[in-house]
Design a protein around this nucleic acid. Structure first.
Lengths: 227, 227
DNA sequence: GCCGTGCATTGAACGCTCTCATAATTCGGT
DNA sequence: ACCGAATTATGAGAGCGTTCAATGCACGGC
């Protein structure tokens, strides 16, 4: 019934397999797939959290809204990322596909049952939650204390690190999404990116403005002050 | 060797006993006490996380610093609160006593050993981490998208909820601490509090400005927009 | 090919919050 | 009780980011 995979504890779990589950070795654990068109909602804030998701292809934004429409994006989920993992019964963010997106999903109940009997799986759940917590803590510092240029620099560095392997940073999200992630307006984000371009730190390639080449990673790092 | 306490899963764990540990029933699990004078450091960011703490009396601030001194307080820890619980090996915040403070502490290793063999304890650790995550997520919305008046209103409501039972909200922290928690300057916090006083929403009592009476909780709640 | 739509850039002016400065009050130590 | 240090309040002015507005460009439908 339950799958027990002894994962390497030194590696950060970043796939459902890493959580200690796999569909390949056990048909009882279902790993379904589902696709969402660009802009469509995957789940809403306060909805029942019945599934845990992993991005197979595409990108997802998780956000909260104030009643007057102000939006704060808490995280972007890229290929390989797990999202929607809750401890309570309901989702604390709304999740939307930024572009056409395919996700793998697993029943949350399944995961919990496994975690109850397998300390390794339970510990992986804790590690994932801790990773999310750490990201949120770093983001609080950014939102509370960094300037607009520092925020945008930090954003590019984060994306550069996460969209690893690629020479160019192909951003799936709009300027507005970036702004709502960084606590700015889209105009301010655009101006900061233009500024970084003037400073010969980044370049734009192709017809679109969403493909960025990081020409000077070191200079960008000095702009985004670290602790 | 290990203590197994079956806690009530419906109650939010908010003491070390709730985590599944107690010194009373088992002398092998040591729950020591330690006192810190006002303003002293309990642990520093990146220091080894060897202990988990619970505030017995007093108050604690957890913060991150940028290299130029800008500070972001991530959380205040009041009587009963557990803090310093890490999954990784080092602390991600610096923790300081805001006033003279006494803490209970427990070796982190002890907790982990228990958690490995006791799913209830392990789940309590996950629940605590999730509570911290939820707080950080809400705070990201505040820092990214709320106005100064909304932030201060949210702060008073949070303190009112946490310093429950008291008719007056006796704040242990300075205006500067509040500012660094809310991503503002102390002057802006002071002005917002004066504004709330003008609006007959809060009153100050006694000689100090740190004792606040919440005269109109409902009006304050309308100022702090909710999702 | 043409046009409508969405996205991004850029400019100009505004305003919220910050910075700087001063004063009043409280707190802590002797 | 006294006095220096710390805290808070408040005003004036500046600045960073927002708001409002116009333009350019890419893409998709007909």
């Amino acid at each position: 019934m339950f799958v027990r995979i002894t994962t390497d504890p030194t590696r950060r779990p970043n796939s459902l397999r890493d959580l200690g589950l796999t569909s390949g070795s056990n048909p009882a654990v279902s790993l379904s797939e589902f696709s969402y068109k660009k802009g469509t909602e995957i789940y809403g804030e306060k909805e029942a959290a019945d599934y845990v998701y992993q991005v197979k292809t595409g990108a997802v934004r998780s956000y909260k809204l104030l009643s007057d429409g102000r939006r704060q994006i808490g995280a972007f989920h890229l290929a390989g990322d797990i999202f929607g993992l809750e401890n309570g019964n309901s989702h604390r963010f709304t999740a939307e596909a930024i572009v056409d997106t395919t996700v793998r999903l697993i029943r949350r109940q399944t995961l919990e049952l496994v975690a109850d009997s397998d300390p390794v799986v339970a510990n992986n759940l804790l590690t994932m939650t801790t990773n999310n917590l750490q990201h949120a803590e770093d983001h609080m510092l950014l939102l509370g204390r960094k300037t607009s240029l520092e925020r945008v620099a930090a954003f590019i560095l984060e994306m550069d690190q996460r969209l690893t392997g690629a020479e160019v940073i192909a951003l799936p999200m709009s300027r507005r999404d970036i702004a709502d992630y960084l606590g700015l307006t889209l105009e301010t984000v655009s101006r900061a990116l233009s500024r970084l371009h003037e400073l010969s730190i980044i370049d734009f390639i192709g017809n679109t403005q969403r493909q960025i080449v990081l020409s000077d990673r070191r200079k960008l790092a000095t702009i985004d002050l670290q602790g």
